[in-house]
Simulated assay, not measured.
Amino acid sequence: MRAIFAAAALLAGVATLTGCSDSGPASYPNPGQTVREHEKALPGKTITIGEVDYAGIGLLTDIVSVTGSHADVPAKGRYARVRIMMTNRGRDRHDLDLNKQFLVTRDGKTYKISYDAMQVARGPATPFSIARDEVRSFDLWYDIPVGAKVKALRITGDASSSKLSDQLAGKQAGPATKDLPLDG
């Protein structure tokens, strides 16, 4: 009888050490980010281009100026600040050319990143690179007309694959563009 209990205890210990469970693969705890003052938390819609997921997580519009430690730059219209989160699910590094990311307003017009606002806010520089298995969140700044309503972020990303089977098959993928809804 003791041998049966000892064997059961040994099996339970092995199962615990090897991580056997019915709950699926382990995941990291994801501490929430505090929404910044006046910023609207977005519902976390996600698009995928290649091996990278893009999620809009925050939006602040009608900003009259951007202030940094070294400058204060008023908007020509109003600034819109979009916080996005990128997750690289591939094995290789992927780049994002920030100059190819456009803000789309409800009237269908597109706006390029405000270089001045990005510099003053000390935003990321282009090309922006994300490593394998990395998650990064950052802000993109746009100068849009007063009264314009934000609809989406038009993302042009790297659609290439780091899967060996794709590489051996000679699959070529260049940039791809998708709209990430930001208007709820």
Results as ranks from 00 to 15, higher is better:
Gln101Lys: 01
Leu168Val: 09
Asp158Val: 09
Tyr28Cys: 06
Arg83Ile: 07
Tyr142Leu: 10
Met86Ser: 04
Gly32Ser: 08
Ala6Ser: 14
Asp183Val: 08
Cys20Gly: 11
Thr16Pro: 06
Val64Glu: 13
Lys151Thr: 03
Thr87Asp: 06
Ala6Pro: 12
Asp133Glu: 12
Gly50Tyr: 01
Ala71Lys: 03
Arg93Gln: 13
Asp95Gly: 12
Gly50Val: 04
Tyr79His: 08
Ile57Met: 07
Leu11Trp: 12
Lys100Val: 03
Ser161Thr: 06
Asp62His: 11
Thr105His: 08
Ile63Glu: 09
Gly170Asn: 05
Ala152Thr: 00
Pro25Cys: 12
Ala7Ser: 15
Ile63Leu: 12
Gly19Tyr: 07
Lys171Val: 13
Leu168Cys: 08
Leu164Ser: 10
Pro29Trp: 08
Lys178His: 03
Gly170Lys: 02
Ile47Arg: 01
Leu168Lys: 07
Tyr79Gly: 07
Asp139Gln: 03
Thr18Glu: 10
Lys45Ala: 11
Ala3Asp: 15
Arg2Val: 15
Glu39Tyr: 11
Ala15Asp: 11
Ser160Asn: 05
Met86Asp: 06
Thr61Gly: 09
His94Ala: 05
Leu182Gly: 05
Gly170Gln: 13
Ser160His: 03
Phe102Ser: 04
Ala80Trp: 00
Val73Phe: 08
Pro127Cys: 02
Ala41Pro: 09
Val135Ile: 15
Gly56Asn: 04
Ala125Met: 14
Leu182Asp: 11
Tyr28Asn: 08
Ile47Ser: 01
Arg91Trp: 10
Arg91Thr: 06
Leu59Cys: 05
Ile155Arg: 02
Ala117His: 02
Arg154Met: 07
Trp141Gly: 01
Thr110Glu: 11
Val146Gln: 13
Ser114Ile: 04
Arg154Trp: 08
Val135Asp: 11
Glu134Gln: 14
Gly44Trp: 00
Ala121Arg: 08
Leu103Thr: 04
Ser161Lys: 02
His38Gly: 13
Ser27Met: 10
Asn99Pro: 03
Gly32Thr: 09
Ser27Ile: 04
Gln33Pro: 03
Leu180Tyr: 01
Val52Met: 09
Leu59Thr: 03
Val52Ala: 02
Arg83Leu: 10
Gly184Met: 09
Asp183Tyr: 05
Gly123Cys: 01
Asp53Pro: 00
Arg36Gly: 08
Glu37Asp: 09
Phe102Tyr: 14
Lys178Asn: 09
Ala176Thr: 04
Ile4Pro: 10
Lys171Glu: 08
Arg154Phe: 00
Tyr54Thr: 11
Pro145Arg: 07
Lys163Asp: 06
Cys20Phe: 15
Val35Ser: 00
Ala173Lys: 13
Ser114Pro: 02
Lys109Glu: 12
Lys40Leu: 14
Asp116Gln: 12
Gln101His: 01
Gly108Val: 02
Lys163Asn: 03
Ile155Asp: 03
Val64Arg: 15
Pro124Thr: 07
Leu96Ala: 08
Ala117Ser: 01
Asp107His: 05
Trp141Ala: 05
Thr87Glu: 11
Thr87Leu: 11
Gly157Ala: 12
Asp97Gly: 02
Ala125Arg: 09
Gly90Thr: 04
Lys40Glu: 10
Ile63Ser: 03
Pro181Ala: 12
Ser23Ile: 14
Pro175Ser: 12
Lys151Gln: 13
Asp139His: 05
Ile49Cys: 07
Lys100Pro: 10
His70Trp: 14
